[in-house]
Design a protein around this nucleic acid. Sequence first.
DNA 1: TTGAAAGCGCTAACAC
DNA 2: GTGTTAGCGCTTTCAA
Lengths: 358, 358
Amino acid sequence: MPRHPENAAASASRAATIRDVAARAGVSVATVSRVLTGNYPVAAATRTRVLRAVRDLDYVVNAHARALAGNRSKTIAVLLSNFTSPFYNRVASGVEQQAMAEDRLCMVSTTGGDPEREVKLVETLREQNVDAVVLVGGVVDTPDYREHMARLARLLDSAGSRLVVCGRPSPGENLPVTVVEYDNAGGAFAATSHLLSQGHRRILFIGGDPANTTTRDRLDGYRRAMAAYGIEEDPGLVIVGTQLPQFAYAELKKRLAAGPPDFTAIFAWDDHIAARSLVALRESGIAVPGDVSVIGYNDEREAQDVFPALTTVSIPHMELGREAVRLALHRDNAAPNQHVMLGTHIVMRDSVRPHINA
Amino acid sequence: MPRHPENAAASASRAATIRDVAARAGVSVATVSRVLTGNYPVAAATRTRVLRAVRDLDYVVNAHARALAGNRSKTIAVLLSNFTSPFYNRVASGVEQQAMAEDRLCMVSTTGGDPEREVKLVETLREQNVDAVVLVGGVVDTPDYREHMARLARLLDSAGSRLVVCGRPSPGENLPVTVVEYDNAGGAFAATSHLLSQGHRRILFIGGDPANTTTRDRLDGYRRAMAAYGIEEDPGLVIVGTQLPQFAYAELKKRLAAGPPDFTAIFAWDDHIAARSLVALRESGIAVPGDVSVIGYNDEREAQDVFPALTTVSIPHMELGREAVRLALHRDNAAPNQHVMLGTHIVMRDSVRPHINA
DNA sequence: TTGAAAGCGCTAACAC
DNA sequence: GTGTTAGCGCTTTCAA
């Protein structure tokens, strides 16, 4: 039994198309299209009729047909290493915010930190015809990987899309890629300098995967600050391995079990590691900041809730994401590669105290 | 100057299409399509030639054309209230995991907790022809909102898509919607009962927006547990308002400044609020769990890092997300509405101690 | 100001 | 096994 057209939308087995709208409004599909895209003058009366038909039929354009017919797909893709790191999420949040402001949809996927999977996802995103692909976070930087990135950048570029890397170094010069960094090494330099200015000389660097670019840069800042104070590096004061908090926790416990700390301050790779270090310290009967000072990185919410509240390095996460989208969408075709670096700053709380007997 | 076809991919202004591949492989587009979708037998030699052409041209299918030509778009959409809540992220993580396992892309957007924006986003997602839309997290449940949801469910359904609500009550019976809940009230009941079994009688419930369904359920569990112990409710022991940690912090400080605590335990709306409560308590010179016990909800990573480590209610976040996708994709058309409820459990740590002088 | 019609790139009958 | 071809729903010339 045929249904009344009035009821069609609510129970139709097939979604309404532009043709249905045109028929109902008594105009051509072209006119409907014009009303909907709004890029062409249409008589007011006609527009009203079309709009009414659209409402009556619960019509929405088919984004795929629209994308196919020439327009881009109006989406920005973000690739994170995982969903559960507040750091990445805040960047993603910034991306999403700006994407929305620029009338784009936002698509988030995770790579699990696996470069291979990252490459494969970019392929898939290429299929989607996205406006830009934003890669967030540090990575293991091998020549092989760089080569892959370079290829992806060109591929995306030739498809009218854009590769943006956010919080990681450029995969190379003269590539059609947008780089949005924060001053990672600078933040580490500042954190270490802060500790040094408080009289600390034996500063333990803990956490992070040494192959990771983020670790490399933070370690670099740490070393430069030490050198600037004329302190030669003690390799025994650098504990790296993985960026898992439990790694740092276990290492610290082991070290503290072996004897009293041979350091007066800790520069933790990030706030999670700092938080777990606080626990290890407390369990070993060492007071913070009484006996040992601790400084973190990232200024995560957690930093305010642990005891004592963490002094840490704040990164402009959201702004990183926003800038990524802004740059990718409004790029100047004359200048193929864009590169900006955002600053960081220290947030002082209660986990650092001057060291007197230096 | 025309380029060599060999170089075309790297610098073409136009991405390769299936026709280019067909031409290069010396076959028809249909054959290329068959090789690519793999749903039809093709001679081995032909397949090899096609695959080579694909590689040579850096060809990837146009997802929009494919979606338009009949297939669904192979994407799952997730709507969160925000990106920065670990709770939502873990659910999103589960969704993404399962989506990937089912060979789907995952699209995440945020609503800022605004029902109106949620509705608008679902519209946009409808344009995208997604396989399913997963709505995560509690919401302000008004009749108006329910009506909207019902409409969206039908709309999505008629477009062959599926609405999944995750961690919030069903918008109504007999609707083509999948509901994946966790036992929110049950968790609150267990948490409160745990406190009661430890001898606590004056238990402060703190945090949450009373209009929010999550708050409603947790408060319900709290009350049922109190009633089960024959304790009549003291409205002065329920502090609700917003789910912002600073709200709970400020309220608690105010109350503690006015005099010694008139409660021996706190049931915090979530772990963030519990963490901030810990800070407020510490600042007011009240020992935890010596003077006051605290229990949280969600078992966020933070729960392990604060001092003392929080006893809390664990929710199967990831499983919630996975189940949402699983159900949405493999639904039985005969049974329009699906509904599952996952259990919660208490994780005991150091923030609860028996209350002696009860 | 509006309509007709030619694609966009792909899949899936339908032929051979 | 493989090729031909008719759409999928939309945008956009080109005409009127």
